[in-house]
């Protein structure tokens, strides 16, 4: 939705949503929340950003490929489980340490790093799906031959997921449309 309101609000909303998602992730151990739900919240924040500025902007903002993020998450979760080997207890046993920082006890555990892994997997995988679907078959994909071009265009307008200050996509669309 290429409206000025959305494009003004989107960065703020996204930033707040992401912050909130981390908050939900961390409070999960004692109050409603956790990695799954936190990850889903983060995805919805990124989705808003994508709707406002296009997928290219999201990809640039993420820096890494979403699947790489998911992979890293899986690795973190796996490693959190493996830590217990060094303590001589079964795989995935939760281990806690409580270092004191400036007088405050901070409980840290492999359980929390596992939850971070869950968060990253959900964030990465679902974002990847959303971005892949959201993306116009543009430079990233070869253009499909279009059938029923008009209805498709009307539909695109209706669903308008492409706000796109993404120069590549825009240029392509204009040009191909002109030649057609």
């Amino acid at each position: 939705m290429n409206t000025i309101i959305l494009r003004t609000v989107a960065p703020v909303v996204t930033a707040l949503t992401l912050l909130f998602s981390v908050f939900v992730l961390l409070r999960g151990h004692n109050e409603p929340g956790g990695g799954f739900i936190g990850g889903l919240i983060a995805v919805s924040g990124l989705a808003i950003y994508g709707i406002a500025f296009g997928t290219g902007a999201v990809r640039r903002a993420l820096r890494f490929h979403p699947m790489a993020i998911a992979g890293a998450g899986l690795l973190i979760a796996m490693l959190s489980g493996l830590v217990s080997i060094f303590a001589g207890v079964p795989f995935m046993t939760g281990l806690w340490i409580t270092p004191s920082l400036f007088g405050t006890d901070i409980p840290l555990s492999t359980v929390i790093s596992f939850d971070v892994g869950v968060y990253l997997v959900v964030l990465g995988a679902i974002t990847s799906i959303v971005l892949a679907l959201e993306q116009e078959p543009g430079p990233e994909f070869p253009a499909p031959a279009l059938r029923g071009t008009t209805s498709r265009r009307a539909e695109t307008a209706a669903f308008a997921r492409e706000g796109a200050p993404d120069p590549v996509t825009k240029k392509k669309r204009r040009k191909s449309g002109g030649k057609r």
Partner: peptide, 25 residues
């Protein structure tokens, strides 16, 4: 952990969750 649901997900049934996030990926 006070949140039973999350404790089940990440601790009691952690191996299940590991499998599930692998499936998600």
């Amino acid at each position: 952990g006070a949140n039973v649901v999350n404790v089940i997900i990440v601790d009691f049934r952690g191996v299940d969750t590991l499998g599930e996030i692998a499936v998600v990926m």
